[in-house]
Design a protein around this nucleic acid. Structure first.
Lengths: 117, 117
DNA sequence: CGACTCGTACGATAGCCGTCGTAGTACGTG
DNA sequence: CACGTACTACGACGGCTATCGTACGAGTCG
């Protein structure tokens, strides 16, 4: 048969216009996901999922990455066995200028406060 | 008896140091609450709960205002029968500089996009 | 092919959350 | 005191969510 393969090797992303502020804020309201985004912003490049040392299991990690992708915060592309994750900075900056930087700065401040405690 | 009255006429607020980014983002990830905060920012003054025309019942309204207060986004003070709500702009700006303005701008943009649809 | 790594899918569970209705309290006014 | 207004408290319900474990698929390397 010439039917398409059942495994979706390409992952669904929202278009720029489909990204909603509500969803972005909800995605970033989880500490684990905010941490992922912060590391991604520091890296300035796409990282594979396994490059993150998160305090949750692999299943949960997959879940968090999916939430970030479906909310439009990150972009995910398969590269061999690895799945590379990149921040959708251009889209976010175009939709909500200054928001991403303000959020990243806020996250850094919160992390500094937590470390001081 | 000289015991304190059982009804808490003064409402519990988090101190500035207790305000957490996670909670703020979670509070603002609900469209109804973001709308409240936007109107509060536009008003530049404290407003009573009944000044808002929200698409939910009064019970739910009370719930949303409590979430905003407990996350440290707004301040609530009784004034007769009314409860006045004010944005905690000073505290938020001190903790997360630029974040509130970026969020309000983003909310305006999202609202404009929604209206265009 | 076989083994290994990376990530997914699915099911389960426990907890939180947004919503409502109803009943009730606090305050002001007649 | 009686009444109306503003808001709350409580319980309920449905839905979402963060978490896990286990089992599986897709790719790479020997």
């Amino acid at each position: 048969m010439t039917t398409a393969p059942p495994s979706p090797r390409v992952l669904p992303h929202p278009t720029r216009e489909e990204i909603r502020l509500d969803s972005v804020l909800h995605a970033l309201s989880d500490p684990v996901r905010m941490r992922i985004v912060s590391e991604l912003a520091d890296a300035e490049a796409a990282l594979s999922c396994s490059r993150f040392d998160l305090p949750v299991t692999k299943s949960t990690t997959t879940h968090h990455f999916r939430v970030l992708r479906e909310s439009g915060v990150i972009q995910q592309v398969y590269e061999g066995t690895a799945k590379m994750n990149g921040l959708r900075r251009e889209d976010l900056d175009a939709l909500f200028p200054g928001l991403l930087d303000a959020l990243l700065t806020a996250a850094r401040r919160q992390a500094a406060r937590d470390a001081r405690a």
